[in-house]
Design a protein around this nucleic acid. Structure first.
Length: 940
DNA sequence: GAGCACTGC
């Protein structure tokens, strides 16, 4: 939608500069004029679109600051190395970016000086501050050099010019939620230098003289508690290219980028199968299953350098895009016109992750020489980069699911390809069922399921014995080592193993990756390693510890992508995030303790909990594969071969079997699927979970007694939220406070990552947080206050710092809120605000969450009204000290106790008023008459 | 007086 009016000549120009491999064509006057024209076009387009008013469900809301959005988009696409959607003049854009960067940095430094005023800084904090100042100076210096700004530069391929541009790559792979300000801080030149200095500074502080020459005795250190490993197996390499990487880079540099693409396409392992593949798709008109035995790990450097300029978020992409390309260009096999010659129905391709959808589509559009957003586009939440021309559309699986709601037969698609099916995400599993269903009455629809799973037969059986098409992958061999005996303390064992590797192997031959279960464990491991290294002094080479987990602030995450300095070794401590979501270069050793945290759901109590559980074999192999991406690797498993064979499950339990299904059921119902218990799931969820979900939806009056969707239910299904949140919004219409309620809903759906609580400043953080709880209004209203205060400061970043609030989460909440606001219109709810009517707001909340009500007990604990289950207010709640008699809560989590997270006081009468079908008068009266111990000890 | 694996709409 957004790209329609960008001129074609831009593409031509771009192609030329690509071929010339030259970067200094400065902008002529003519081009500046053209840029201006484009900008005007854009503005006009945005105005028109806004005037048109009616918006498609998934269309992003771009109205806040059109310019800002344009810059953001431009930035994103530049990183794609596509540059197709540039909306502002390059010159203007760069200038703005530089200025903004400077301001941000200055603010940052000032903030910190302000915050730490009168506080004695630790060594690390001082270093951090001076590090920031350094960057500021560097950026300032660079921005004064104005000549730098006007010229058009092709983004570098990252195998050129002395190495990888890590920040750039990383900023895409890691920034789940893009923050333009943070991204802009990542100046490839300045930060690199400052970082190096920073690192050197750290190293000198810790390890003393770096210049000391190593003597032979330095390496004779032996650990007291070595762990013995047995080499048990080797995962063979497949199709590993014999050519040395250096040679091939040199070779490929000599050619133009376009030639490189042509050339490399032919060397892909899939290339010889091209005709067979198309023939196979052609022969199986009704349903066709394609299983790609993908490269489990790794691909040689020369391929990586060319195929994933954008970063390497998704390891399956290289197979995926080439298949899509074949299908798209080979469509005339089926008697239709090729994608280039005009209209035919769309090809849809789903990915489990946003970044993957973006990067693969960028790659394919480049491959086909078309502009991203035209013939090839992507569609993810908050960002729809497609147009009427789009024929090959990449999207997240959840997005296709929502498209189903608007178009239950997917009439606009002729091919659906589900990629990464082995990950078995919730959305993928539901898509399976739906897509299989519509394939029955749409014989023209082709299905392709692409998976790296080993039990292809299971997938094939599910899709009515669809033929399996195997495509060989590519990987390096990985040696697998098991321990001789089980390890009692896997954390300690992991640390010992890492140090063992570090000491016995020459530095520089490869980094170490340790899989741990969570933030806490990672921090502990970090401390242990630091402590042990200290004990070794300068006897060993430098070891750089890099923690990585999703909640780690983005700036700190960037560290793992820095190249390892000469003579040192990195040890990466990661959660599951390193298993699928991101790829780290240079890992040669993987240490796998065999555990991860998994969410489980108990349908009986409606409680979710995160449990540390043993991983599956599939998961273990995936982890092992992480060591063989750039060369032969080794994987050390901290369990025995017997454990592996006998104790581990083959595959991870699919998400659909261990989650709350309320949302799934609502979606399926609104698609007209009534018999859910007999719905064709590949792995059916527990019947109990389904019934629980149905029960809840009935209670929320989303379903009637016959299990049919009601009008309320239909409206609820429009919102991409939990049914209880959706109900809350629908109910807010009655209480005239939809404005407040959507803010609350947005804040709640961001999760519990809003308040930031650094270990060393917990008191400050808690104080700041309590400000929002003034008057004991309850956690929901406190969240509303947070959002509104932030809004009043014009979404200020500094305000967030002052109040220990995570900017990233707030920005996400803002986006969600905007989306919800747009959806209100669709379900005909008026946007009304009444901030003073707290009762109305609380009643709306109760309308959605009445099944989650609890009553205070004598001992200070609570008991849920419906199930008489003992629960407690979470200590982080504003009501933890207040203990109101009745509360309604957002969710129940099981950690050390059963805690209610986000609670608000309510009046018991409301329960009967709002949900007379759910609560009897006696439920409430009974309780209020007993009240608190009035007489004396009524024991029992 | 406690703790947050990872995604996605």
């Amino acid at each position: 939608m957004v790209v329609r009016n960008v001129g074609d000549e831009r593409r031509v120009r771009r192609r030329t500069s690509l071929d010339e491999d030259d970067s200094d064509n400065s902008e002529s006057e003519e081009e500046i004029l053209r840029d201006q024209k484009e900008r005007e076009e854009l503005e006009r387009h945005l105005r028109e679109r806004d005037a048109a008013g009616t918006r498609k469900l998934a269309e992003p809301k771009l109205t806040r600051k059109e310019e800002e959005e344009a810059i953001r988009r431009s930035d994103a696409l530049e990183r794609d190395d596509i540059g197709a959607l540039r909306k502002v003049s390059r010159r203007e854009y760069l200038k703005k970016r530089e200025q903004k960067k400077l301001e941000e940095l200055r603010d940052d430094i000032e903030d910190e000086q302000y915050l730490f005023e009168g506080v004695k800084l630790t060594e690390a904090e001082q270093r951090e501050l001076s590090y920031k100042k350094q960057i500021y100076e560097l950026v300032k210096k660079r921005s004064e050099d104005t000549d730098d700004l006007g010229e058009y530069r092709m983004p570098d391929a990252y195998d050129l010019e002395g190495g990888v541009n890590q920040e750039k790559r990383f900023s895409v792979a890691s920034e789940r939620y893009r923050d333009p300000a943070a991204a802009e801080k990542m100046n490839p030149f300045a930060e690199q230098e400052a970082w190096e200095e920073h690192q050197i500074g750290k190293a000198t502080l810790k390890f003393g003289s770096k210049n000391r020459k190593p003597t032979s005795e330095d390496y004779q250190f032996v650990f007291e508690d070595q762990i013995e490993f047995i080499k048990a197996a080797v995962m063979d390499g497949i199709n590993v290219d014999q050519e040395s990487p250096a040679e091939s880079i040199e070779k490929s540099m000599a050619k133009s980028a376009f030639e490189k693409l042509q050339e490399d396409r032919k060397t892909l392992p899939i290339y010889p199968y091209r005709d067979d593949l198309l023939q196979a798709v052609n022969d199986h008109q009704v349903r066709f299953l394609l299983l790609l035995e993908k490269r489990v790990p790794g691909r040689p450097p020369r391929y990586r350098s060319i195929y994933t300029k954008r970063g390497i978020p998704n390891e399956g992409s290289s197979v995926n895009w080439i298949v899509c390309h074949y299908i798209a260009t080979g469509i005339n096999f089926w008697g239709r016109r090729s994608i280039f010659q005009g209209s035919c129905s769309m090809i849809g391709c789903t990915q489990p992750r946003r970044v993957a959808a973006m990067s693969v589509s960028a790659r394919v559009s480049q491959e086909m020489g078309v502009k991203l957003g035209h013939e090839v586009g992507y569609s993810i939440r908050f960002e729809d980069c497609t147009s009427e021309k789009t024929l090959l559309k990449y999207m997240t699986d959840g997005m296709l699911l929502r498209e189903f709601l608007g178009e239950p037969d997917l009439a606009s698609y002729s091919v659906i390809m589900v990629d990464e099916a082995h990950e078995r995400t919730l959305s993928t599993d539901i898509l399976f069922g739906l897509v299989k269903d519509i394939a029955r009455f749409r014989p023209d629809l082709k299905l392709l399921i692409s998976s790296a799973t080993l039990d292809a037969e299971k997938f094939s059986d599910y899709f009515d014995c669809a033929p399996i098409f195997k495509i060989p992958g590519r990987r390096f061999p990985v040696e697998i080592h098991y321990t001789k005996a089980p390890e009692a303390d896997y954390l300690d064992a992991a640390v010992v193993t890492a140090l063992q590797i570090h000491v016995t192997q020459p530095p520089g031959d490869g980094d170490i990756l340790i899989f741990l279960t969570g933030q806490e464990e990672i921090e502990t491991a970090e401390e242990i390693i630091k402590h042990r290294i200290k004990g070794l002094g300068t006897k060993i080479a430098e070891l750089i510890i890099c923690p990585i987990y999703a909640n780690l602030p983005t700036e700190l995450q960037a560290k793992i992508f820095e190249p390892t300095p000469e003579g040192a070794r990195k040890v990466v401590l990661a959660t599951n995030i390193a298993e699928t979501s991101l790829t780290i270069d240079g890992i040669k050793y993987v240490i796998d303790p065999g555990f991860s945290k998994m969410k489980s759901y108990n349908p009986r109590t409606g409680m979710e909990s995160l449990l540390v559980t043993p991983i599956s074999k599939a998961s273990a192999n995936q982890r092992a594969g992480r060591s063989g991406r750039t060369g032969p690797g080794k994987c050390f498993r901290l369990y025995t071969a017997y454990n592996y064979m006998n104790d581990l499950e083959d595959n991870t339990v699919p998400e659909i079997q261990r989650t709350n299904l309320a949302n799934v059921v609502l979606s399926l119902k609104s698609l007209g699927i009534h018999d859910l218990l007999n719905f064709d799931f590949m792995d059916p969820p527990p019947a109990e979970a389904l019934l629980k979900a149905l029960e809840l939806l009935f209670a929320l009056s989303a379903l009637n007694k016959l299990g049919e969707l009601t009008k309320v239910g239909r409206r609820m299904a429009e919102f991409p939220l939990d049914p209880m949140l959706s109900k809350m919004i629908v109910a807010s219409d009655k209480y005239k406070c939809s404005d407040e309620i959507i803010s609350i809903a947005a804040m709640l759906s961001v999760g519990n990552s809003i308040f930031y609580r650094p270990k060393d400043k917990q008191v400050h953080a808690d104080n700041a947080r309590m400000n929002f709880h003034m008057g004991n209004v309850g956690d929901h209203i406190a969240l509303l206050k947070v959002y509104n205060s932030w809004k009043e400061t014009n979404f200020s970043t500094q305000w967030c710092y002052e109040n220990y609030i995570q900017v990233r989460s707030m920005k996400r909440a803002r986006d969600i809120r905007d989306q919800l606001e747009g959806l209100l219109e669709r379900v005909e709810i008026e946007l009304t605000s009444n901030i003073n009517d707290l009762e109305g707001i609380k009643k709306s909340i109760t309308s959605g969450f009445f099944p989650h009500s609890a009553k205070l007990q004598k001992n200070g604990s609570y008991r849920t009204v419906k199930h008489a289950q003992t629960v407690h207010i979470h200590p982080s709640s504003g009501l933890a000290q207040v203990l109101p008699r009745w509360v309604v809560y957002h969710e129940l989590v099981l950690t050390t106790k059963e805690y209610m997270r986000q609670a608000t006081e309510l009046k018991p009468e409301w329960l009967v008023e709002i949900a007379p079908h759910y609560y009897q008068l006696k439920d409430v009266e009974d309780a209020s008459s007993k009240k608190m111990p009035r007489g004396s000890g009524l024991v029992s």
